[in-house]
Amino acid sequence: MSGRRTGRRLVAALAAALVLAGLVTAGSAAARDRGAGTDRIGSYSSSEGHLAYQVHVPPSWRPDRPMPVMVAVHGCGMTGYGLNSMKSMTRFDELADREGFLVVYPTQSLLRNGFLCWNSLSPEHQDRDRGEPELLAGAVRQVIEEYGADPARVHVSGASSGAGTAVILGATYPDLFATVTSVAGGEYRFHRAEHDLDGVSPVDTAQLALAAMGPRARQVPLIVVQGDQDDVVRPFMAERLVHQWLVLGALVATGRPDVDTTPHAVERVEPPGAHPYTRTTHRVPGQATIDSYLVEGMGHTWSGPRASGTFTDRAGPDLSTIVWEFASERPLR
Rank of each mutant, 00 (worst) to 15 (best):
L222H: 09
L222F: 05
V71L: 08
L95A: 07
V200T: 13
G138H: 10
V24R: 02
T179D: 02
V140I: 14
V203P: 00
G227I: 02
P276E: 02
E99G: 03
D291Q: 15
S122M: 06
M298R: 12
F311M: 13
V19Y: 00
G22I: 00
A307W: 02
V183M: 10
P59W: 02
A327K: 02
L20G: 01
H50E: 12
D230L: 11
A166C: 06
E187S: 09
M1K: 08
P106A: 08
W61H: 14
V233N: 04
T25P: 00
S303F: 07
T262W: 04
V140F: 05
A274Y: 06
W245C: 04
S47A: 15
S43F: 02
G297C: 12
V156F: 06
T321H: 06
F177A: 02
E99K: 11
A13P: 01
M237V: 08
V233F: 01
L251K: 00
M78C: 10
M298K: 06
R153E: 01
V232M: 07
G214C: 06
Y293E: 05
R153V: 01
T179E: 01
L332N: 05
A52Q: 08
T90I: 11
P174G: 02
G7H: 08
L121I: 04
G199H: 11
T262L: 08
A29H: 09
P58F: 08
